[in-house]
Design a protein around this nucleic acid. Structure first.
Lengths: 133, 133
DNA sequence: TTTCTGTTATATTAGTAGTATAACAGACAA
DNA sequence: TTGTCTGTTATACTACTAATATAACAGAAA
């Protein structure tokens, strides 16, 4: 796979792993119906513990990204896009709130914030790394 | 002050406190040059430990939001807006990246993401709570 | 029946969040 | 000069999370 984990940094590796799988789905590297490695295989591949991978898979399943079958393994959810329901929108707004408050204090207009978001959007879809311009 | 801390929730209270002070600056309730309560006074006011407040103040100082003087106390940084330098922009983009990847999987266009950000922007500036529409 | 799969249980180590006390040191007012 | 504010530092303790290590259980398929 396309995984790069920073074992030293502040961000927990299970969060990094989860985010990278979601980004893989977002940019189309992982497509609906695709198989994911077994918890043991992926853990061995990237040199972490089985339980760390399992925690990620459980969270991804609960949030609708993947399906898990008892002895057939794990796959990207075949239904394609997830529903952007009110719960999702409310949570996203709550997450954005402190980021946008920070941006305001840094003299960012809503338009500048939108422009920067647009850049990130395209970075993801064009499969660029996040190393900046 | 205008502080509402959720002692039970997942988010650490020092993070909540920090975010709410920044939002207070963003919406103009806390203005450049304004005094903030002493670490002991604020801790006693909201019923938490002195060190928890001190940690928040130290972080806010390092990020340029406030000034701390040894025995005169703490004030909002008198210089007004902070510089939105390249480091800030790079960090913001790195923070947004997983949020936007999620949004893409939820079939959000860049425009919808921008529109939702705009809503949050106005919620903050018009001093609305985050209880949603 | 062997060998995959996810699942569950238990234990340990390391780090962070938060609290509790105490003491130190600079500044300012009575 | 003496209190009494201020932030600062040190130490210790509890609770929780992240991550690991082993082991065993249970369903399904070759």
């Amino acid at each position: 796979m396309f995984l790069e984990l920073d074992m030293a940094g502040d961000k927990p590796i299970y969060v990094q792993l989860k985010e990278q799988i979601i980004e893989g789905i977002a940019r189309g590297s992982l497509r609906p119906g695709d198989d994911l490695p077994s918890v043991r295989a992926l853990a061995a591949d990237i040199g972490i513990n089985l339980h760390t991978v399992n925690k990620v898979y459980q969270q991804l399943r609960q949030e609708g990204y993947i399906q898990i079958h008892r002895s057939r393994g794990v796959m990207i959810h075949p239904d394609g896009f997830l529903k952007a329901d009110k719960t999702y929108r409310t949570n996203l707004k709550a997450t954005l709130r402190p980021l946008i408050a920070e941006a305001i204090v840094h003299d960012f207009s809503a338009e500048e914030f939108a422009r920067l978001s647009q850049e990130v959007y395209e970075q993801i879809l064009t499969k660029e790394g996040g190393e900046d311009e």
